[in-house]
Structure formats: C-alpha cells, structure tokens
Write a protein that binds this DNA or RNA. Structure first.
Lengths: 326, 326
DNA sequence: CTGTTAGCGCTTTCAA
DNA sequence: TTGAAAGCGCTAACAG
C-alpha cells in the first residue's frame, strides 16, 4: 500500500516545524506570517497531505465522527432522519455515519457497545428497547448522546420526537367531524413503545370507547386473519375509520381494501394513518394521511448534539416535539 | 466527562506490564500463563477498561471500521446491501457504517474524500458517477475498495453487480412468449449508467426494434406528460409490455395504470420491471417482476473486502454477478 | 512466558 | 511569529 505524507514531511518541505503546520491546520493562522502560511499551503498541496485523524484523536480526545444508530435502516423514516442529521453535521465539519440495529434489541445493544472505543464524537440513537439500565451500560459515557423518535422512560438524554398525541388527535377529530364514529386501529403490540402509546391516546381522546385494535402480526397468515377480522368489524359497525399507526400497514391494507371494495369514494369507510413517503398517495390519490417530518427531527437532533460536542458536556434531557402535517 | 482507564492502569492493577495486556487483548494468549491471563481478565473487568482505537490505529495503521457509501440511503436497495455487508463484517469483528451520496455526484466525491483520513479499514461504494479520474482522486489509496451495483468503466476495483443483461432478457422473453411484441421501457436517462444500459440491452436482444423508451423525468409535470404518452402508445400498438427499469417507476405507474384500466387481467397489456420490495405485489398480487438480491450483493462485496483487508492488498478487479429472480 | 523500550503522527505548553 | 520537546495510549521488536 502506498505510503502517505506525514506532518513532518510537510514541515521539512516547507522549511518550518511541525508545530507551525499544526497551527496552520487548526486555523490558528492569525498569528502567523503570511509568507510561511503560503509556503505551508504549497507544501501540503505538493505532498498531497491529509492529516491523520487517529493521531489527532489520540491527543485531543475528540472525534468528528458521529454515529446515527437507526432502528432499521430499511425504514424510510430512519434514513430521512439520517439525511437531516447529515445536512447539519456536514455544515459543521462533522462526518455522519449510519448504523443499524436491525429491529433487534440485542443487536441494538451490540451496535451501541461497539461505539465504546472513543472513535465517535457523538451518538444519535433511534431507540428500540425501553430498557434504561441496559442502555446505560452500553452507551458511551464520555460523548454526547441524543435520542430520537421514541423515548426511553426516565432517560437522562435529550430526545426529539413527533407530536404524536396532538397530531393523532387532530386526524381523529377530522374524521369524527365527517360523521365517522368508530375507529379501527392497526398496529403492532403497543406495549412499551412510547410512539404508539401516544398515538393511540390521541385517537382515544376523540373516539373514546369506540376504538378497536387490530394487530396484523408479522407473517402472512396472521395478516390474513387480521384482515378478515377488520372486514367483518367494518361491516358490523356499518363503516368507520381505519387508522394505521405505521405506514407499513397502510401500504399493506390499503390496496387490498380498495380492490375488495371495502373502501370506496364517498362512502362510510375511510382510511388514514402515519405515512412517511408518498406511496399511499400513488395508491389512493387524495387520501388524507399524517406526514411526519423525519428530516427535521434529524436536523434538530444534530443541532442539540453539536452544542453538546462543542461545549464538551452532555446535553440536558429536554424533550423537543417536531410537528407533523395532516 | 468521565476519565477512562488506560492500558497502564490495567497493567498496574494486574501487576504486569502493558505488553502483557496488549498481548492478551490481541489474542496472543497461547504463550501466556493462565494465572496472569486470569489476573488480566479481572483487572480489565474491574476497571471497565475499553481499548483506545485511535492509539491502536496510529501504530497498526489498521482500522476495523468499514464505510459503505450508498448512492441514496433512502433506497431500499442500498440499505439491503448494507444489511448484507453488515452481516458478514460483524461476524469478522468489523464495524460497518453507512454513508450517503444523496444521489448527487458532487456529494459523492465529498463523502469519499472525507474517508481519506485513515479512520477506515475499507470502503464499499455504490458509485453514482462514472468519472474514473475523479474517483481516483478522492478514493483512499491505502485501503481496499469494492464497487457495487454499478460499474465504473475501466475501474481498477472489483465489483459486484446483478446479472442485469441476462435477467432482463429472460423477463422480456417470457412476455414475448405470451404473445406481446412491443415493449415500453420506463427509465431515466440511460447514458453512462452501466446498470440501465445492460438492462436495456437485454430487452432489446428480445424485442429488437420494437422498443420504445419513456423517460418520466423528475417532476410531477414531466411524469404526467410521460404517462399520457405511454397511454397513447399502448393504445396505438394495441397492447404490449411496460417494463420499468427501476422500482420507483413501477410504484408510480402501476397503480395509476390499474385505476385507469390500462392494465387489466387477461388483457394484452402487462407490466413488469425491477422491483426490490414486495410493494408491487401489494398493489397487484401475482404480478411477475424481477427481484434482485441486494443482500447477497452486500455479502459478496464484504467477503471480497475482507480478503483485501486481511491480506493488506487491493483486491483484484474481478467482476462478480449475483443472479436476480424472475 | 514476560518486561523494556522505542516510536506511530499529532497537539501543545514553554521558550526563544 | 516560530521551534523544541514532551507525551497521548498503544504495539512490536528485542531481551531476558
């Protein structure tokens, strides 16, 4: 492999000491004769010099690498968050990288503990687990941390989330005002996941006891069971609102509900839900859904993180809500 | 911030030298009395010691961090590749991280040059640009590189791609055998992107001159223009095959074509294309599409990369094709 | 089987 | 405005 120029090489090329190169590199160029500055610039270019991050980190104990640990990188929501984070970090001269918990709490902990090697200057986590104790064990202690999307109970870290309760309530109210008085909520098991709990609360605040929960499960069979159950329930209540707490269910149920004639234009059955992409609109143009703003969530988290890195303190554990659109 | 135990602390805690700790950590434990090994184990646990990667990298010039630079992290295809890469790297004790070129050739180059700091032990790139010279400038020279999905002409790096030509031809032949004798190919500009060129060639090998290209463009207006054009053309040729070179177009065109009655069951109009997710199947159950295997592409790329890292040589520039399903 | 020692490439006082 | 020199935490000869 090719050998690389070091700071010493640059120093001798420019006829100065390494200290001068270092100062130059760190922008301490105000107390520096423009003649030497120029010679250094040229030497760097000539030798194609790139500073060695490891050496720098070793002494400064700082890193400009920031890890974003996503619940599942296959999720558009997660990757949009990353894009938001990336946009602000890049401006501030940090490098953002995305890591994957793969929807698996064990892997999440594994991923997080791999960060414990002082290579990263900060971590942004979209948590999967709700186990505060486990998190405290594996999350690096010496770098700033920000949580996203979901909240860990009693967490000491700041978090940025969608206004799940408010926006769910708003959407529910909209359809109630249309005359629908029953709602079928499609969701996975809601236990322990702050996001789903808040959404459900918002819906219940409008429809009270007229809320029925449908859990499609993870395989095709249980989906079919859930689908049939939904169809029967909709028929039994002479219509109502079908509310998917996750885009995945919207995409899975909506086309079938349309094909089967369960949902028709100007009818007593409507569907809505949390939708991150425009795919639902392709399927059913004009459908009214909740659009979160993952990009902005990422932006906001990154800003908090940067404050933490620059001040070398853990950001305080405030909670920030990013409004969704309906 | 919390101060962290160093190797020295562990050494004095265990009553041995740092060299012993180092050997222990690097698995050179075969020439080591089990008594000291045990003392070291305990000291490490007691002090909660985690090795400092920067110091290690500084001297070994090796890193177990591998960057996967995706064309667009919003793409399911890119993230599945990452999952494949991650699965094999993790087993081999590497840490894989995902970075984003954001579908922008300039940013791609920016992202790549940020890798030039010896923090990464290898790079896997899903290239966007086809500009070999630009790549050579920014791609780290001293670590192994593997290309994915697309090929850079005359590239010195190994690449792993789908068997685009073969599978496109197979799919085309299938529909030709059904009696369709005209094909409408929906694609972005094909110039300079190896993937699209190969797919188109495969289709042309079957339909010869009966191939019409539709370019939907990037905004809603140009999409509508393209859509209307497609409808007219289909009517004019009394049917045919609509072939989307990218899943995005499948998702955008298919629901509308179904709603508008252009595609009906047992009719002279069929649609197919490259589809990575099961979303198309939700929309039109039983539709026959090409399924690539991004996960396997990632696995294969990671294996090649690891060989390169372990042998400290640049992998040779072979091309590996991963078969798709139809 | 284990310790001593000399750096890896950089930053940062302290002096000049 | 610049340089000399110490040292960050680790690895790898070389000795013993």
């Amino acid at each position: 492999m090719v050998s690389v120029a070091t700071m010493r090489d640059v120093a001798s090329e420019a006829g100065v000491s390494t200290a001068t190169i270092s100062r130059y590199l760190n922008g301490k160029t105000n107390h520096m004769s423009s003649a030497t500055a120029k010679r250094v610039t040229e030497a760097i270019k000539k030798l194609n010099y790139v500073p060695n991050e490891s050496a720098r980190q070793l002494i400064t104990k700082q890193s400009r690498l920031v890890a974003v640990v996503a619940a599942d990188v296959d999720d558009y929501f997660s990757t949009e968050i990353f894009k938001g984070v990336n946009s602000v970090l890049k401006k501030n001269n940090f490098i953002a990288v995305l890591m994957d918990s793969d929807s698996d709490e064990q892997r999440e902990l594994g991923t997080l503990s791999s960060l414990n090697q002082q290579m990263f200057g900060g971590v942004i986590i979209q948590p999967l687990s709700n186990d505060l104790k486990a998190f405290k064990k594996v999350i690096p202690q010496n770098i700033p941390v920000v949580m996203l999307d979901r909240q860990v109970e009693n967490s000491p870290w700041p978090s940025v989330v969608t206004n799940n309760y408010t926006i769910s309530k708003k959407a529910a109210q909209y359809f109630k005002d249309q005359g629908l008085n029953h709602v079928f909520v499609i969701t996975n098991n809601v236990k322990n996941v702050s996001t789903r709990e808040e959404r459900l609360s918002g819906i219940k605040a409008v429809f009270h006891e007229n809320v029925q929960i449908i859990e499609p499960g993870d395989n095709e069979d249980s989906f079919n069971v859930a689908y049939e159950k939904l169809k029967r329930s909709v028929a039994a209540t002479h219509g109502g609102l079908i509310f998917a707490l996750k885009e995945r269910w919207l995409l899975k149920f909506l086309p079938k509900l349309i094909r089967d004639g369960v949902i028709r234009k100007s009818d007593g059955v409507h569907m809505t839900g949390f939708s991150d992409t425009s795919l639902t609109d392709n399927i059913d143009p004009g459908i009214k859904v909740i659009n979160q703003d993952p990009y902005q969530i990422g932006v906001s988290a990154a800003q908090i993180l940067i404050e933490g890195v620059e001040s070398a303190t853990q950001p305080i554990a405030k909670k920030i809500e990013i409004p969704a659109q309906f």
